[in-house]
């Protein structure tokens, strides 16, 4: 299938008071249309920075990329129309109602007023937010908040959806619901989903293919089973052992429940 994202040597160096920080040192990757790509790596590996570059929020200091056929540098407006992005922190105002946020978002994507209202109802139905439309976003649970964040990002029916650590901080039930939602988006709408995570079980269960980043470069890529076979010793190896073999580091003691790296 056609590549919907391709990046070559994508890099970003931040100038800070303590000198330059090479957050991303050169990422090469291709994502096929309709794929769920797991972008996996330890904290500080450069996952968020890569996502912010691919969504036009941050100018790369090196390399190039195209998203949905549009060059990042040459036509950022077209890239914005083609992709949706959910930051790790989400992006809704706690004092505003779910309805107002969704309608305003529709208007930001240039829907006419009536169209934005209609789209709000549709998204709410699709993501189970109908009962919550008149609540302030501060009154939502973690899982409901995440569904709202994703609804906001789906307003314009993007070809590519970027999710930055979408399940961090969610309880196990909400995580499972979110996995189902991501699969459904791909199956029903053909949306390509590019998600970062540091949960190995999530990557294993959800992603068609994994790209493992470490210190700003791609350390390995392939399907979960191919990676296990190549780096973990056998197809029955755990992804955790595989990851350890690739990055040379053990899992960090993060959240106790899911397996984290």
């Amino acid at each position: 299938m056609a590549a919907v994202i391709s990046a070559a040597g994508l890099a970003r160096t931040f100038q800070t008071r303590h000198g330059p920080v090479e957050a991303v040192r050169g990422i090469d990757l291709t994502v096929r249309e309709g794929e769920i790509l797991g972008f996996l790596g330890p904290n500080g590996a450069g996952k968020t920075t890569t996502l912010r570059m691919l969504t036009t929020l941050l100018k790369p200091t090196g390399g190039a990329a195209t998203v949905a056929g549009h060059d990042l540098a040459a036509d950022p407006a077209a890239v914005r129309r083609a992709c949706g992005y959910v930051a790790q922190s989400g992006g809704v105002d706690p004092q505003i109602t779910v309805r107002e946020e969704l309608v305003t978002q529709g208007r930001m994507y240039r829907l006419p007023k009536a169209g934005a209202v209609r789209r709000t109802a549709e998204l709410a139905r699709d993501l189970g937010l109908t009962e919550l439309l008149d609540r302030k976003t501060a009154a939502l649970s973690g899982g409901q908040r995440r569904r709202l964040d994703i609804a906001m990002a789906l307003t314009h029916r993007p070809k590519v959806l970027f999710l930055d650590e979408p399940t961090t901080g969610l309880d196990p039930g909400s995580r499972a619901d979110l996995w189902d939602l991501v699969r459904r988006l791909r199956d029903e709408y053909g949306t390509t989903v590019f998600l970062t995570t540091h949960y190995l079980d999530e990557a294993d269960a959800l992603a068609d293919r994994l790209v493992i980043v470490d210190k700003g470069v791609v350390a390995a890529e392939g399907t979960p089973s191919a990676l296990k076979l190549a780096h973990g010793g056998s197809i029955d190896a755990t992804l955790q052992d595989t990851f350890l073999a690739i990055t040379g580091r053990g899992p960090a003691a993060a959240d106790p429940a899911p397996v984290a790296v």
Binding site: R52, T55, T56, L57, A77, R80, R81, C83, G84, Y85, A87, Q88, S89, G90, G91, V92, D93, P94, Q105, M108, Y109, R110, M152
Partner: peptide, 16 residues
């Protein structure tokens, strides 16, 4: 505050 909540980036990622 809006930067911390991610509101600014959420708007900057739209064509607005």
């Amino acid at each position: 505050m809006e930067n911390a909540q991610g509101v600014v980036e959420r708007m900057r990622v739209t064509p607005v």
